[in-house]
Nucleic acid binder design. Structure first.
Lengths: 255, 255
DNA sequence: GGAAACGGTTCGACAATGTCAAACATCGTT
DNA sequence: AACGATGTTTGACATTGTCGAACCGTTTCC
């Protein structure tokens, strides 16, 4: 029975729609989006509500994600080996570099942030764990794509690369060449490609089978991360050695 | 059709088991736990894997929660009105009190932490957003239970209250009396009842219909939060006014 | 002020759907 | 080499979820 269970797939599709930008959606909207009868969608929603995956706004009648998902998300983090193994190294990298640190994995052609350490001294920052950032405009994403070329091909084959700033790389061939460089040198960077005045540096993390399972990197204002529009060598060093340390902790053979 | 969809309920039950302490579970274990045939469980797991809700460990064959849940959990936070409205007030309370701040809601007889601000100055702390803490041994939980007596009754009717330290209140009648006091005064506290040398103070947050939708509170070492084994009055003041501010922001009538 | 349009919800008949138990494959262990 | 433990596949069965129309309550707009 190599088939999937229809109702569960549909339920997941509903949850995915609800986790999209729209936050709150009504039965009719969902039904329209999925091409299903209202009644069917309602039945699924009732069940999802019963198990706490969605909640209904008493006033508008619309549905939104439920609290149970928050707890499950955090449980996922507890069981995530990449994150637990990387915790200490991420802290160390933040201290060394003086910048905020992020660890991410590829998820649906984007980068899912699984860990985030704030800048040591800094003012309040928003925690980004759980958020998705574009792969082609972040150092984390590039580091990951460089080791997953088949996935990169899929992404690049899609409907064009979104541009976030004038510096965003949207040319497929140029990005491909950049990925080649990254594979060769073992680190990736991005300067003003996602936010105009921000830059980032990242390196891939590999597991015991030498497959890339994530990436670790730092983010900060261009003037702190770069010198003459190029990432500062000492920061690159911090990032790559951190990545190697985490890889080793995950069982990768020492380099 | 006031019925729920069986397969979705079962899928949710599987996810709940996987988010329990055990992290990784095999098909047989899950089947045993749920009293279902292995084949059935396997079909559900295959679907959940396809939609990214679970992942399978290549080596052991066991299943664990998937990355999609992390993103959904964080999407839940974005749409959570209580949290978004409380963000600034929580920061302010942390600054005022000098202690770490938590905001929680009741979820399955426990307190789900939906926001967490670290101590202003402090060393690294673990982010607790998404975790569940016991209701009867935390100030947050008591503040919530005091306004949901029917739920409190259910909790108290269960199989006894877990004891975490010698100070944990496990006597139902004593707790009930404490909840009465809390309702009357509008704030709750706990001294060494969850962790031996920690204390917490919390107050309920109400929405426009005057129903309690959450609670906000501070946590810290007893010697900082208390004076002569009683919560310091000025801290109580900070907490209660913060709670009122958030309530007002949620549309509650001004007091 | 009425009526139409839109929201979420319920209903019952139908058959497609998911379930089940047993057999299979693949490990590691005895 | 046989066992026992995994996770996995299979096919027959009837339970189960689906569907579309009808329902009820709000809001909107003549």
């Amino acid at each position: 029975m190599p088939g999937r269970i229809q109702s569960i797939e549909r339920a997941a599709a509903i949850l995915r729609l609800l986790s999209g930008r729209s936050r709150r959606l009504g039965v009719a909207e969902l039904a329209g989006e999925l091409g299903l009868p209202k009644g069917t969608v309602h039945g699924i929603l009732r069940t999802l509500q019963f198990v706490g995956f969605v909640e209904q706004d008493r006033e508008s009648g619309k549905y939104q994600l439920g609290a149970a998902l928050l707890h499950m998300g955090s449980s996922y983090l507890d069981g995530n080996e990449l994150r637990t193994r990387a915790l200490n190294w991420a802290d160390a990298l933040a201290t060394q570099s003086g910048e905020s640190v992020r660890i991410g994995t590829l998820h649906e052609n984007q980068v899912l942030i699984v860990h985030h350490v704030f800048r040591p001294d800094d003012s309040r920052q928003a925690l980004e764990v759980g958020s998705l950032v574009p792969a082609h405009a972040t150092a984390l994403g590039k580091a990951l794509l460089a080791s997953h070329r088949y996935l990169a091909a899929e992404l690049l084959g899609g409907d064009g690369l979104m541009s976030y700033t004038p510096a965003t790389v949207t040319d497929i061939y140029r990005l491909r060449r950049e990925l080649d460089d990254i594979s060769e040198h073992g680190w990736a960077s991005e300067v003003g490609e996602l936010y105009r005045d921000m830059a980032s540096i990242a390196a891939p993390i590999t597991d015991r089978r030498r497959v890339t399972v994530g990436a670790i990197g730092i983010t900060g204002p261009i003037e702190r991360l770069c010198e003459a529009a190029r990432p500062r060598p000492e920061l690159i060093g911090y990032v790559t050695t951190s990545a190697r340390s985490v890889s080793r902790e995950l069982g990768a053979l020492p380099w």
